[in-house]
Design a protein around this nucleic acid. Structure first.
Length: 616
DNA sequence: GCCGTTTTCGGCCCGACTGTTTTCAGTCG
């Protein structure tokens, strides 16, 4: 939920110095030439404008307008520059983008410059925005440093805080201490962790808190971006229903996982755990569970919209309750369903609460029926000891069976990927014999598919000959090397593979590794259209490091008519549990069961494959 | 700066916690 940690890393491939807001050391621009702008960069630029305006003391609603536009653009499933198409009027269709911002973005796309930004950034000292990165320091404080004390840089502030002779009226000892700590902590609390890491840690904290508080806790749930299953999590939010909030919070801040207590009041506490994850806990009475959980799940923008709808119905909505504005009478909601019902909406799955159309859909009773984990009948990417996996094919099959799956494709790597002990033709045919034997044993109760994760070479050719590719049940093609190719080059390379008649699936399309490797420069819009045209299926790789396609990309792909598969990319039997992260991305992307082909039985799925369609 | 099933003007979500300028502004979520 926190605005300031929602800023995704700009694409490394797109710019050397990308716009950044609130995160410190964010030298912005220079904007010098026309090029392609990622949504993240545009959002960061608009946020930056908001920051500057805030320091200047501008009308706060103007600042909010820039922030909201940034938020919408960042969460958009389409590249804003693609939407633009040379006409600012196209940008006006984006919620939160009006005439003024549309004109400014138009100028940015046409000229590579934004005059307004250049103008306002020249009005304040360069270093002021960097100081916003200090936790607890906002625009008013920065403005005070500047105007009252003539402090305009982080280093200047640091020196002033250390200087006993420096008189800083209005800044007490406690604040000075907090500022010193805050400066040294810049960047420490802003790293987002992967969804899986946050989810498992939340489980651990919840178990510890429940054990330590006896029966004081009536209900407890993750909220915030974790409950919405965003690919990465900034802060961990937990909501607790209890009649003993003091006891719960006293216990919480003393848990062994806690490194530092940042705040501790009667209903709320904030801590930093030893693993560096910041965690907020809120406690309310069980009678208020519905409004509490709804509010803390967010997103921020979803809440603003829902509260606005409440206002139009004469109701004020907070985490505590609804309140009739005229009579000041409280209406308590013990469930989230009641909250949405009072707003005349269907209950909205948390994964959709990003203010990207779910509210309108819920009002019109047109929410999609999202895919569920139990809808999956098979997994079309996993690995065995034959390449870089840790288990035998039999062990993998048993792991999948234990989770209710009916088939898996063993997709050990092709030989070009030397690091992964890739298979050549001879070993491939040996592996097929083992699979045949296993399938014979299963007698139809389970099926192991002959498959390969074939490497798409830098020039777009495949790493295995066609006669070998023709022998598999199904083939998934992926890129692992030369991921830093230019947009044109890597797109052309992938298109070549999509047009290959024996490539059934294009796996983990962008090659991203969350927090480690940015997505490739691939033009997904072009790739998605080509996949539809060629009948190539796109993969959501659920491995918690990949989650690729991500939510917005999956949504766009389905909008364009693509079919998907959701795979675990498991390298050991427990790896099949990663299917849940793939499902998370799919659900966030509004994906339904009908969009995902491995919800089908193998016999039905087989008929949908390109290799079999083209033969028929 | 954005927006409209009351509005093209006049609104814009709501509350917790902290520190200090002791009654509330600033920040955060």
């Amino acid at each position: 939920m926190p605005r300031k940690s929602e800023i995704a890393k700009p694409k490394a491939s797109d710019s050397k110095k990308a716009p950044k807001s609130k995160k410190g050391k964010g030298e912005l621009l220079p904007i010098t030439s026309t090029r392609r702008w990622s949504n993240q960069e545009i959002a960061a630029l608009l946020d930056r404008i908001g920051d500057i305006l805030a320091i200047e003391g501008e009308n706060r609603f103007k600042i909010i307008a820039y922030q909201r536009a940034a938020d919408v653009i960042e969460h958009s499933s389409r590249g804003i520059q693609d939407v633009w198409q040379g006409d600012p009027a196209n940008l006006r269709a984006i919620d939160g983008v009006g005439e003024a911002i549309a004109e400014k973005l138009d100028e940015l796309f046409r000229t590579g410059q934004m005059g307004y930004y250049e103008k306002i950034r020249a009005q304040i000292p360069e270093g002021l925005v960097d100081m916003l990165a200090i936790p607890g320091v906002g625009p008013k404080t920065v403005s005070k440093f500047w105007k009252d004390f003539n402090i305009t840089t982080l280093d200047g502030l640091k020196a002033a805080l250390e200087d006993p002779a420096k008189n800083l009226p209005g800044i007490g000892d406690k604040t000075i201490e907090n500022l010193k700590q805050g400066i040294s902590a810049i960047g420490l609390h802003t790293t987002r962790v992967r969804l899986a890491v946050a989810a498992y840690f939340a489980q651990e904290l919840i178990a510890a808190l429940e054990t330590a508080t006896g029966n004081a806790i009536k209900n407890i749930s993750p909220a915030g971006s974790l409950r919405r299953l965003r690919p990465t999590i900034g802060d961990l939010d937990l909501v607790v229903a209890s009649h003993k909030p003091e006891l719960v919070l006293e216990t919480f801040v003393k848990l062994p996982q806690v490194r530092e207590v940042l705040g501790h009041g009667p209903t709320k506490a904030t801590i930093v755990a030893h693993n560096g994850i910041q965690c907020d806990v809120r406690v309310l009475e069980p009678e208020r569970w519905g409004t509490a959980l709804q509010y803390f799940t967010g997103s921020r923008e979803h809440n603003i919209r829902t509260r606005d709808i409440a206002l139009k119905k004469g109701l004020s909505l907070s985490e505590w309750s609804f309140t009739r504005i005229k009579s000041e009478k409280e209406i308590l909601c013990a469930t989230e369903e009641q909250v949405y019902e009072l707003l005349d909406m269907d209950w909205i799955p948390p994964e959709l609460r990003e203010a990207t159309g779910e509210i309108e859909a819920a009002q019109q009773h047109k929410l999609p029926k999202l895919i569920r984990l139990e809808d999956l009948k098979g997994d079309l990417q996993c690995h065995s000891k034959w390449s870089d996996g840790a288990a035998t094919i039999r062990e993998m099959a048993e792991g999948a069976r234990a989770r209710g799956l009916k088939y898996i494709a063993i997709t050990d790597h092709s030989k070009g990927l030397g690091v992964a002990n890739g298979l050549d033709a001879r070993r491939t045919r040996e592996q097929w014999k083992e699979i045949d034997k296993l399938n014979h044993e299963y007698q139809g109760a389970f099926r192991v598919l002959k498959s390969v994760e074939v490497e798409i070479r830098a020039d777009g050719t495949l790493d295995q000959p066609d006669d070998l590719l023709a022998g598999y049940d199904i083939v998934i093609a992926t890129t692992h090397s030369a991921l830093n190719q230019s947009r044109e080059k890597i797109t052309e390379r992938v298109l070549r593979a999509l047009h290959h008649p024996l490539v059934d699936i294009f796996g983990h399309p962008t090659g991203q590794l969350i927090g480690t490797r940015e997505p490739s420069a691939l033009d997904l819009e072009v790739v998605f259209r080509a996949a539809v045209e060629t009948g190539t299926i796109l993969e959501i790789d659920g491995s918690s490091e990949r989650m690729d396609l991500t939510d917005v990309n999956a949504r766009r792909a389905v909008e364009l008519g693509n079919k998907l598969v959701i795979d675990s990319d498991a390298h050991n039997p427990d790896g099949f549990d990663d299917l849940r992260w793939g499902i998370a991305m799919a659900r966030r992307g509004w994906v339904t069961k009908a969009d995902v082909l491995n919800t089908l039985e193998w016999d039905d799925l087989r008929k949908r494959l390109k290799r079999n369609a083209t033969r028929a």
